[in-house]
Computed example of a mutant assay.
Amino acid sequence: MTATADGGEPAVSKGTVHLVHLYPREMSIYGDLGNTRALASRLRWHGYSAVVHDHHPGAPWPEQVHLVLGGGGQDSGQARVQEDLAVQADRLRGLAADGVPMLMICGMYQLFGQAFVTAEGRRLPGLGILDVTTTGNPTRMIGPVVLDTPIGQVVGYENHSGATVLGEGQEPFGRVRHGQGNNGTDGTEGARTGNVIGSYLHGPILPANPALSDHLLELAATRATGSWEPAEVDDSIAEQAHQRQVRRLLRG
């Protein structure tokens, strides 16, 4: 595990928020490390200090955790983290049950589910934090996505061959306006239980979705300091990128 304080800390900090990035070497092949960097930067812009813990297989767990992130990876990357994930399973389940916000993308989304069933029929168990099951699919789902979510409209880019099905009563992260989503058929994308969000959206997802970023940060900062005191942040560039994708995909 490595821990770093985000550069350019505010002169007077409103408090320190600890972010944990799970397996950044093995599970961050589609730019998902950008989510961690975006959150650390936004914390600084809002007047907080950020400490980022990179959790690698076999490393000790940090003493303080206010938000957990995970990204996408190839099947080989998932295999390399399976042993450590089993060691951390009860801790992660406990943190999720206690309300710690988490954002799991693509491969880590699948590993936070009930199971991944390979194309050959082999069932690989997941953490069960999200009630989803993923099956290997010969058809790859690739392209830009627009979602409607309770947090607002979200844009991103999907690239996955796993077809994910929600368990009965499992809330999706969002409803697909454009794209394939979980499986290309039921109109759902991702899953959400408590403060845990799973999604297939890369991009990375957070820089172009500042409302989603600040939703996660509000949960994390409140957990760390007892309150959330956001500052005025200029999100004009992020909003332009967001709206251009929406206009291109939904309005022609």
Rank of each mutant, 00 (worst) to 15 (best):
M1T: 15
M1V: 13
T4Q: 09
D6H: 14
G7T: 14
G8H: 12
A11S: 11
V17T: 10
V17C: 05
V17W: 05
L22M: 00
P24F: 08
P24W: 00
P24T: 11
S28N: 12
S28T: 03
L33I: 09
G34E: 00
G34Q: 07
G34C: 03
N35G: 06
S41I: 08
L43V: 06
L43F: 04
R44K: 08
W45Q: 15
H46K: 06
G47P: 05
Y48G: 07
V52T: 00
H53A: 07
D54R: 05
D54Q: 04
H55G: 09
H56A: 14
P57E: 14
P60G: 11
P60V: 06
W61R: 06
P62W: 10
E63H: 11
Q64F: 06
L67F: 00
L67T: 00
L67G: 01
L67K: 03
G72R: 02
Q74W: 11
D75G: 12
G77M: 10
G77R: 08
Q78G: 15
R80S: 14
Q82A: 14
Q82E: 15
D84Q: 15
L85Y: 10
L85N: 05
A86G: 15
V87D: 14
L92M: 12
R93F: 06
G94H: 10
L95V: 03
A96K: 09
A97T: 06
A97V: 07
D98Q: 10
G99E: 10
M104E: 00
M108L: 12
Y109K: 04
Q110M: 11
L111E: 09
F112A: 12
F112E: 07
A115K: 14
A115I: 06
F116S: 14
F116A: 14
V117F: 09
V117H: 13
A119V: 14
L127I: 10
G128H: 01
L130G: 05
L130F: 00
L130H: 05
T134Q: 08
N137T: 11
P138S: 09
I142R: 04
T149K: 06
P150K: 04
Q153T: 14
V154R: 09
T164Y: 03
V165W: 08
L166M: 11
E168P: 06
E168Y: 10
E168I: 12
E168M: 12
Q170F: 06
E171A: 14
E171I: 03
F173G: 01
G181R: 05
D186W: 09
D186P: 07
G187A: 01
T188C: 13
E189V: 06
G190T: 03
G190S: 10
A191Y: 04
N195S: 10
V196F: 01
G198D: 02
S199V: 08
S199R: 04
I205N: 07
P207N: 04
A208T: 06
A208W: 02
A211W: 11
S213Y: 01
H215T: 00
E218Y: 01
R223Y: 05
T225S: 02
W228Q: 08
W228V: 03
P230Y: 04
V233K: 09
D234K: 03
I237T: 15
A238F: 07
Q240K: 15
V246T: 01
R247Q: 15
L249M: 01
L250C: 11
